[in-house]
Computed example of a mutant assay.
Amino acid sequence: MEKKRWIWIVLDSVGIGAAPDAHRYGPGDAHSHTLRHIAEAVGGLRAPHLAAMGLGCISAIPGVPCETSVGAYGRMREKSWGKDTTNGHWEFVGVVLDQPLPVYPEGFPPEVMEPFERYVGKPALCNRPASGTEVIEQYGPEHQRTGRPIVYTSADSVFQVAAHEEVVPVDVLYDWCRYARSILTGPHAVGRVIARPFTGSPGRYQRTHRRKDFSLTFGETVLNRVAARGYPVTGIGKIADIYGGSGITEAIHTENNMDGVDKLIAQLDRQDEGIVYVNLVDFDMLYGHRNDPVGFARAVEAFDARLPEIRERVRPGEVLCIVADHGCDPTTEGTDHTREWVPLLLWTPGMRRGVALGDRETFADVGATLAEYFQVDPPPVGRSVLAQVFGADETPSV
């Protein structure tokens, strides 16, 4: 079996402009452009290494020029309904969700809450859409007094349970969430159940890195087929959670973006084939949802500064792929994700010029390219761009 390696980085929430159907999701979505707006907030984004891969050639971003690119660059629109992590990541690997996952703008109904509360042994607090940081400030003191779980949702298809680590041990919180996942099926099959542990005291609460997602799964994907060929498929950060472990041969937990980059680099130094797949979540969790465009911009710049360490580990014939899964424009009204195009950046050593990939009709073009690279059956949707990345005479033989 030929040695091949695909290094895959998801910049969570780093959207690049309102999708054509963004108006269906709300007025904020229709005017969203995460990258442009965070760049404007700091008077121009300093991201020379992403610029070299072609980021500024996809859309006008202050501070990110479109000059000499040595990568393949384009943007992708989502076919699936929605703008959540689950939808985006599963579409990457060829699963298009043509029906919206359930959302709960009025909170969860009794047929969900009653069995959950019986299992927990206490009535829940909140049960409505809320910001994760605001909800623990509001309900944290009562939760600490009573041990009642804080249950909340958002505009996305999520059932979130927050609990203080000194009140509810993290393993117990995970158990509650596994039970919630078991009952959230059929018409209530939300995309993710999320455990949200926190620590601290009133006025100084902090969510911890022990968050865990319990996601729906949607059958075999290109990840399973790559793993079945004998290649390792390593998920770093919340990747394994997003896919419910399906197709992932090793899962590595992370605490934040820079820890994610450190662990990606460490894994590249010991895993010389297969897929190394990381989600960097701070852009979304710490800045997008908290309406902090300056913090968001600085986080992108911090990642960009680490990009040379990653690129120097990519060997000839290997592929570095950088994408996003949706937007989360911190300048729009509200704190929810935004329906946006996402960047597609691909690079392999030896590329001498930029390659414009244009507008892609589905996120599944990533999975189709991945399938051709590893010579496995392609997903049912998506078109490979492998020949454009390597050049007609350099595409790996099939």
Rank of each mutant, 00 (worst) to 15 (best):
M1R: 11
E2L: 14
E2I: 10
I7N: 03
S13I: 03
G15H: 00
G17A: 03
H23G: 11
H23E: 15
P27T: 13
G28K: 05
A30N: 00
H31I: 14
T34Y: 02
L35A: 11
H37L: 08
R46G: 09
A51N: 06
L55D: 04
C57E: 03
S59M: 14
S59P: 04
P65D: 14
E67S: 15
V70W: 09
R75M: 12
E78V: 04
S80W: 02
T85A: 06
N87C: 15
G94N: 07
D98E: 15
D98P: 07
D98S: 12
V103F: 00
F108D: 01
P109Y: 10
F116L: 15
R118I: 07
V120S: 11
V120D: 10
G121P: 00
G121S: 12
A124S: 15
N127F: 04
R128W: 10
S131K: 05
G132V: 05
E134C: 08
I136C: 06
H143A: 04
Q144M: 15
T146D: 10
G147C: 12
V158K: 10
V158R: 02
F159D: 02
A162D: 06
E166L: 03
P169E: 04
Y174I: 06
D175S: 05
W176K: 00
C177I: 01
R178A: 06
R181K: 09
H188K: 01
F198P: 11
S201I: 13
R204F: 13
R211Y: 01
F214C: 00
V222M: 10
N224S: 13
V226Y: 02
V233D: 02
G237L: 05
A240D: 11
G245Y: 01
E255Y: 15
N257G: 13
N257T: 11
G260R: 06
L264E: 05
R270K: 12
R270G: 08
Q271V: 15
D272I: 04
E273W: 07
V278G: 00
D282T: 05
D282C: 01
D282H: 00
M285H: 09
H289E: 09
N291A: 10
N291F: 02
D292P: 04
G295I: 01
A299L: 04
V300N: 01
E301W: 07
L307M: 09
V319E: 13
P330D: 06
T331P: 00
T332F: 04
G334H: 02
E340P: 00
L345S: 09
M351S: 08
R353D: 15
R353W: 13
G354R: 06
D359Q: 14
D359I: 12
E361W: 11
T362P: 03
A368V: 00
L370V: 11
A371T: 03
E372V: 03
Q375N: 15
S384G: 08
V385A: 07
V389P: 02
V389Y: 09
D393N: 14
